[in-house]
Structures are given as C-alpha cells and as structure tokens.
Simulated assay, not measured.
Amino acid sequence: MYTPHTHRGAGAYARLGVETQAMSASPHQLICMLFDGAAAAIGMARHHMGAGNIAAKGQAISKAVSIVDNGLKAGLDAKAAGDTGTELVANLSALYDYVIRRLLQANLHDDARALDEAEALLDNVASAWREIGAADR
C-alpha cells in the first residue's frame, strides 16, 4: 500500500542513488547530471504551472535556477579554458544569466513560453556537451 512514508522513502532512495552516481562520476558526467537536473526541474515547474500549484511551481523553478547558477555557471573556468576558450566561457556565462532571467520571468508571470525557451537553450548546450563526451570515448 502507498503511504506518505513510502513516498519519502522512495525519495530518499532516489537521492541516495543520485549521490552515489555523482560520487563516481567524471567531471563531464557531473555536468551532464546538472543539465538533466535542470531539465527535470523545468519539467516539474511546467507541470505545477499547468496544475495551478503556485508554491510547487516556485520551488521547481528555484531548483532549476540554483542548478544553472550554482552548478553550471559556477562550474565555468576561464583559466582552464585558456586564451582560446575565454570567449566561450563569457558567452556561456551570459547565456546562463539569460536562462536564469527567463526562469524568473516564467515564475513571476506564469509564462510557459519562458520555460520552453529556457529549456531549449539548456538542451542545446547539453547536446553539444554530450557530443564532446561521446567524441572523447
């Protein structure tokens, strides 16, 4: 039988799985996990927006913003990119700032198109990132 305790237990089990996966992941895989987490949070925000659940929508968007800002953007390293990658790092940083603004607008105005745009922009970068990883194998 399904109970609230079962749900919490399943959530804890899922978090443990993600934590275990993160501990054994390469830096490239960690970035992929951040993209996946942002996409999942945006999907949940879209669901909650459609259901009219304002609090849950706000929490999901906050999670997506946190992943983009404290994960993807914070992980940019201009020094590691070298002279040739400095412009790329600056462009990605600006893109992540724009994505964050669109997510915040989506939250303020219940704007599903802003969610779609943020998701599409992140998906484009994630696809390129995954191709780099496939080429390295």
Rank of each mutant, 00 (worst) to 15 (best):
M1Q: 05
Y2P: 00
Y2C: 00
Y2M: 05
P4K: 01
H5A: 14
H5Y: 13
T6D: 15
R8V: 12
G11F: 07
A14N: 05
A14R: 05
A14E: 06
T20I: 07
Q21A: 10
S24M: 12
A25D: 04
S26G: 06
P27W: 09
P27G: 11
H28F: 11
Q29G: 01
I31L: 14
C32I: 13
M33C: 01
D36L: 06
G37L: 03
A39P: 06
M44N: 13
R46G: 12
H47S: 10
H48L: 08
H48T: 14
H48Y: 14
M49N: 03
M49I: 03
M49Y: 03
G50C: 00
A51R: 11
A51C: 06
N53V: 10
N53E: 14
I54H: 11
A55W: 09
A55F: 05
K57W: 04
G58R: 10
G58K: 08
Q59C: 07
A60C: 11
S62C: 10
A64F: 01
A64Q: 04
V65A: 07
I67W: 00
V68C: 01
D69A: 06
N70I: 04
N70H: 09
G71E: 09
L72W: 02
L72P: 04
K73S: 04
D77Y: 05
A78T: 11
K79H: 12
D83E: 14
T84D: 08
T86Q: 11
L88G: 02
V89C: 02
A90G: 00
A90V: 04
A90K: 05
L92P: 06
S93D: 13
S93A: 08
D97R: 01
Y98A: 11
I100M: 07
R101S: 10
R101D: 09
L104P: 08
A106D: 15
A112I: 15
R113I: 15
A114R: 02
A114D: 09
A114N: 04
A114F: 00
D116H: 13
E119L: 10
A120Y: 15
L121W: 05
L121C: 01
L122M: 02
N124I: 15
A128P: 12
W129G: 05
W129M: 12
W129I: 09
W129F: 13
R130S: 07
I132V: 14
A134V: 02
D136V: 06
R137I: 07
R137M: 07
